[in-house]
């Protein structure tokens, strides 16, 4: 009886050794992973942040020009168009630019794009955000 305890304990130590090695490796790896994961995440974040910022800035810039024009010349755009511009402004104001984890971000971006396309079509202006179909959407999907 004692002999069986002996042998099982010998194997215990062997099994425990494996586990311990595994755990030590895991902990080392975890530490390194934290560092490299943060760095990789930061790089992706830098890219995404710049792209999202650029696109939103573009819409905001357009909006600023239109609003300034409306201030000076209220008759420059039809009332329907002015309403759309107003709505675009609301959408842009609501966009959580500094909260990348917000889950509504993609939906809001789509709404903004749609609104912008409606406005530029109504204006008959050849105005579009050129970086958008490829870089932004692709980037989102990649992640």
């Amino acid at each position: 009886m004692i002999k069986t305890r002996d042998t099982s304990d010998v194997f215990d130590s062997v099994v425990l050794l494996d586990e311990r090695l595994c755990q030590e490796g895991f902990q080392d790896g975890y530490k390194d992973g934290l560092v490299s994961g943060k760095e990789e995440g930061r790089e992706v974040g830098l890219k995404m942040g710049f792209q999202v910022g650029e696109e939103l800035g573009f819409y905001q810039g357009c909006l600023d020009v239109w609003n300034s024009l409306i201030q000076i010349d209220p008759g420059a755009f039809s009332s329907r168009l002015q309403k759309s511009i107003q709505q675009l402004g609301d959408l842009l104001g609501k966009y959580p630019l500094l909260d990348p984890e917000n889950e509504d971000v993609q939906e809001m971006m789509d709404a903004i794009r749609l609104k912008f396309r409606i406005i530029s079509a109504n204006m008959g202006a050849k105005l579009e955000y050129k970086g958008y179909p490829k870089s932004s959407t692709q980037g989102m999907e990649d992640i």
Binding site: G37, K38, G41, V44, G45, L46, K47, M48
Partner: peptide
């Protein structure tokens, strides 16, 4: 840690 890094980078750029 990836999400944390992502947020840092995102806010920076």
């Amino acid at each position: 840690s990836a999400q944390e890094g992502f947020n840092i980078g995102f806010k920076q750029s």
